[in-house]
Amino acid sequence: MPFSTRLFVKTSLVYAVLAAVFFALADAASFFHWRGFSPYQTALHLFLVGWVLQLIFGIGHWMFPKYSRERPRGYEGLMYFAYVALNLGLVARLVVEPFPGLWLQSWSRGLLLFSGLAQWAGLLAAVFNLALRIKVR
């Protein structure tokens, strides 16, 4: 298993735990009517992006058909970029999104925009590298 795959898969396991914690917090926030704390959307994205998507990227990078003899896993640098961008984006989201009261402050507006762009850029890099390796045999 290549190093980048191990990074993706181990990080995805951490997000699976975090997502479960956030789902529990979302339930508690709803039950106890905690004002100003709304973690459900964040929990969903920790689950779907942090856990499921990163697991798929990691395993896909390991198992997809080889790109070429010289570059069997395509452009490895793109996967590292994807890893860093996706996780910076997710952490930025984690800091701001559960607190709607903060959304309109200028620093958090910037952080939300950064989070969206970073996650999308990371995903684009990984998709590009994996799409190169879709081969019919």
Partner: peptide, 23 residues
């Protein structure tokens, strides 16, 4: 390949949604 198209388009939409939370 088709699923990747949806991933790129759907997540661009999601990034836009997230960014508009700050507006």
């Amino acid at each position: 390949a088709t699923s990747f198209v949806y991933l790129v388009l759907g997540s661009a939409w999601g990034a836009w949604l997230l960014a508009t939370k700050g507006t």
